[in-house]
Nucleic acid binder design. Structure first.
Length: 187
DNA sequence: GCAGTGATCATA
DNA sequence: ATGATCACTGCC
């Protein structure tokens, strides 16, 4: 009867190759603490991995800049940047310090699309560089379920056509949101 | 199918 | 200082 308490994912989980983290984040929960203190949980159903300096689709491949500095830092921090002058992109940094790698969170709960989910959840630049933790008010929790591998679809990443052969690597991970909600008993 | 949007970065 | 770029979205 002791309800298993949700496991907050920490740097131990994130300090691994981005593609591994991206796959294992499917079914995890993105938790947002609202202004009134309430917690809102959203199941992660779509992610993309950005592997590091050798990955030409990755911001880190153009070297360290002010914008992407968080990616070069330790794993487990939020990397948030503005895209097309309008949309905030939410990433979680992965791998060793000095290796610019991260996972883009593209879909959670009923929120489809990386720009829409940040808008819906009120996520912006203020989270950039913060550890994903309760203190930040934005964190990730492990799924309580074992997600069957056959439910995971892998495709090339979206919107990175400029990246040559790296544009075609299957580094986007997707599961059907309804299926995963049912598996988690939240439907 | 493509315009909007503006911070960021390279070039100078 | 200037111009190109861009991990998207919404409307044509």
């Amino acid at each position: 009867m002791a309800a298993t308490s949700p496991r907050v994912l920490t740097s131990e989980f994130f300090d691994r190759p981005a593609d591994r983290v991206a796959r294992e984040l499917l079914g995890a929960s993105l938790v947002v603490r609202a202004a009134d203190g309430r917690l809102n949980r959203h199941l992660v159903f779509e992610t993309e991995a950005y592997l590091g300096a050798h990955d030409l689709a990755c911001h880190g491949s153009r070297g360290l800049t002010k914008r992407n500095a968080t990616m070069f830092g330790p794993a487990g921090r939020w990397y948030v940047y503005l895209c097309y002058g309008m949309h905030w992109m939410l990433n979680i940094v992965t791998g060793r310090e000095g290796v610019p790698a991260a996972v883009l969170i593209r879909g959670v709960g009923e929120h489809v699309g990386p720009g829409r989910l940040t808008k819906s959840l009120g996520i912006d630049r203020s989270f950039d560089g913060q550890p994903a933790s309760r203190r930040a008010g934005l964190w990730l929790e492990a799924s309580g379920i074992a997600l069957p591998r056959r439910l995971i679809e892998r495709t090339p990443r979206i919107g990175v056509g400029y990246a040559g052969e790296w544009a075609e690597k299957p580094l986007r991970f997707v599961v059907d949101p309804e299926r995963i909600a049912r598996l988690s008993g939240q439907l």
